[in-house]
Design a binder for these strands. Structure first.
Length: 647
RNA sequence: GCUGGCGUAGCUCAGCUGGUAGAGCAUCUGAUUUGUAAUCAGAGGGUCGGGGGUUCGAAUCCCUUCGCCAGCUCCA
């Protein structure tokens, strides 16, 4: 048998007989590697360790400690197969659909008359552990298409048959694990014994191939990690996310509610949430005015004709509330603010000297969402965008886009976010008919967006084909305290609406020209942003946002009047202060203030009233000792004024 | 909208196979006068999400409707 040459990651080359398996190569290096390796990478392609190597190649072994995400993906994919094998042991009537790895684990879809229950999950997990102990191999078998199809048909695997008919090559691979045979490209870890730490998380409904008209499927979600420690950390993070859930905190801290009687997806901002919203709006408004925006207010409804002109009745109908008939015409609740701002623009003849014209509004819009998709503050039917439309000449577009990005970064950082992901969504030149406008316009638009990012040295990802039909856009996602991404800021280039509404300005040359529009929202929606903020801070807001900034706690009744005096002084300094003189032990009142996440608690008793001071307790670090009342006020005022996130 | 789960006091929840509702916290009243995360006692509070049905009898079983939760699908 001829020899082949195998190149190792360190550059060394060794000869092996043709047909040797990757596992044998690993063994030639060391028994430890052979037992830990999960898959091999041959010239960059992932393969099973058991696969014979026929030609010279480079090789790399992937173990749990390899710095490649592919290892974990394969591992989770194998875990999904392990799950399917366990399901077939306990529920022979289940018909496996698909079961891929996901970002945080894996799932497997089954077709079955009866849904799985929580108890079923526990039994399945137990069975999976048994199969791990049995150390079953993930055995790869190649079938000719017809022969393989027949095999799956005999097993009654009608879903797999459908996939094979649609996707299989003339010879396709399948993987066998115990009773489970899957049409699968692989690769997999060598055997079930390699799977160390996993957990089944939930059952949920799904649809075959994601098509809601197709078979209902039962999806079992699970996750798997190389070590129990990593799994535990992941589960702890799930718990932490639950602890921070804005719906729960919104109730506990009395920030907002959703009322059955009013309808789903409609938000009631309670007084404490209202103060936070006011602080957010005040801050934004000040910045907007500083940056040359002009504030406008527009109605919530308009004649349907307006929405016909804008094109919304056509391409956005599915997201709009149905129109209402009034005496003279049909009226439509607004799903967007742009046509209104356009009407303000059109209300007079515009000169190039007025541009860029920046119109900003906290505009409340209503969008119809299907009943199953609402989620707290994050997905609602009525929300307020911190919206703005910039009407500009083509020459100034890049500068305007750049200014939007700068403003977005400034704003988001002020709220304490400092990790971002930026995306540039561009068109797909292959599908020109999907987009409005000429290719040259698109290239110019993309170039100006891209250049705005480049001159700021902002790292970004280009996503072809993700542009809106009317223009390319830049989206900024922030990462919260749990590193979850949230898409908030969007800056969109639009030459479609200016054309629809025949917008014009008179240029320096005395001719009329068409302006370009930039749609831009920094926080996206105030409701959604509020939800993100609550979860990011777990309800413990920065001082400047905290609904109650200080609570004054008199030790006993004889300190009431001094406590009252302290509270008045705080209020005079525009610090939100509350006096808690309830007939409760100090400990109980401290506890309540802690649970309400009040930044400062001021204990006042004999010592404090004698010395005109307060005993400061901080929300995060506890007792901070005595301070003169004047000093405390000055310090807190300063922290509020500079919108400190930490103190 | 679809699949599955759930809906009992303001909140968190108990209530086995049908026999006209219970705890803790919160609220109110009284006692207590408190030094850095829950003082004690008493009282009030529910047409068991809404409607219909089965039954001598329904929080419990059935139908229907509204809402919530986890997903699917779609988005700020």
């Amino acid at each position: 048998m001829p020899n082949i040459q195998i190149t190792f990651p360190d550059g060394s080359v060794r000869e092996f007989p043709q047909g040797i398996t990757a596992l044998e190569v690993a063994r030639s290096i060391g028994p430890r590697l052979a037992s830990e390796a999960l898959v091999a990478k041959l010239d960059g392609e992932l393969v099973d360790l058991s696969r014979p190597i026929e030609t010279s190649t480079s090789i790399q072994f992937i173990t749990p400690t390899s710095p490649f995400p592919e290892g974990l993906q394969v591992y989770r994919h194998s875990s999904a197969h392990l799950l399917a094998a366990a399901v077939l042991e306990l529920f022979p009537d289940a018909r496996p659909g698909v079961g891929p790895p996901t970002e945080t684990g894996f799932y497997y879809d089954f077709y079955r008359e009866r849904p799985f229950t929580e108890e079923d999950l526990a039994r399945l997990e137990e069975k999976m552990r048994e199969l791990v102990k049995a150390d079953l191999p993930f055995e790869r078998v190649d079938y000719a298409k017809e022969e393989g199809l027949k095999l799956f048909e005999e097993k009654g695997e009608f879903l797999k048959c459908e996939l094979i008919r649609e996707k299989a090559e003339p010879v396709f691979s399948a993987y066998k694990t115990g009773k489970f045979l899957d049409f699968c490209r692989g690769p997999h870890v060598p055997s079930t014994g390699h799977i160390k730490a996993f957990k089944l998380l939930s059952v949920a409904g799904a649809h075959w191939k994601g098509d809601e008209r197709s078979h209902p499927m039962q999806r079992i979600y699970g996750t798997a990690f190389f070590t129990q420690k990593e799994l535990d950390a992941f589960l702890a993070q799930l718990e932490e996310a639950k602890r921070r859930d804005h719906r729960r905190l919104g109730k506990e801290l009395d920030l907002f509610s959703i009322q059955d009687e009013a309808g789903p997806g409609l938000i009631f901002w309670h007084p404490k949430g209202g103060i936070i919203r006011k602080e957010i709006e005040d801050f934004l408004r000040d910045e907007l005015l500083r940056q040359g925006y002009q504030l406008v207010y527009t109605p919530h409804v308009a004649r349907v004709d307006l929405w016909k002109t804008s094109g919304h009745t056509n391409f956005y109908r599915q997201n709009m509330f149905t129109a209402m008939r009034l005496e003279d015409a049909e009226y439509q609740l607004k799903p967007m603010n742009c046509p209104f701002h356009i009407l303000i623009y059109k209300d007079q003849r515009r000169s190039y000297r007025e541009l860029p014209l920046r119109l900003a509004e906290f505009g409340t819009v209503y969008r119809y969402e299907r009943s199953g998709v609402m989620h707290g503050l994050l997905r609602v039917r009525g929300f307020t965008q911190d919206d703005a439309h910039i009407f500009a000449t083509p020459e100034t577009i890049e500068a305007e886009v750049g200014a939007c990005i700068d403003l977005a970064m400034l704003v988001l950082r002020t709220f304490g976010f400092d990790k971002f992901e930026v995306e540039l969504s561009t068109w797909d030149p292959e599908r020109r008919d999907q987009y409005f406008g000429e290719p040259e316009q698109w290239q110019a638009a993309e170039a100006s967006l891209e250049s705005a990012l480049k001159t700021r040295r902002i790292p970004y990802r280009r996503i072809p084909g993700e542009a809106a039909f009317y223009g390319p856009k830049i989206d900024i996602k922030l990462l919260d305290a749990l590193n979850r991404p949230w898409q908030l800021t969007t800056v969109q280039f639009d030459s479609w609406l200016p054309a629809r509404f025949e917008l014009e300005y008179v240029g320096a040359d005395g001719q009329t020209h068409r302006p370009i529009m930039v749609h831009r929202a920094l926080l996206g929606s105030l409701e959604r942003f509020f939800g993100v903020l609550i979860e990011h801070y777990a309800g413990a807001f920065p001082l400047w946002l905290a609904p109650v900034q200080t609570v004054v706690l008199p030790i006993s009744e004889k300190h009431h009047s001094y406590a009252q005096d302290v509270t008045e002084q705080l209020k005079k300094a525009r610090i939100r202060a509350q006096l808690d003189h309830r007939n409760e032990k100090l400990n109980a009142r401290i506890r309540d203030a802690q649970l309400q996440k009040v930044p400062f608690m001021l204990v006042v008793g004999d010592r404090e009233s004698a010395a005109r001071g307060v005993a400061v307790r901080r929300r995060d670090t506890g007792d901070a000792g005595f301070q003169l009342i004047g000093d405390f006020i000055r310090q807190v005022r300063e922290l509020i004024d500079k919108r400190a996130v930490k103190w």
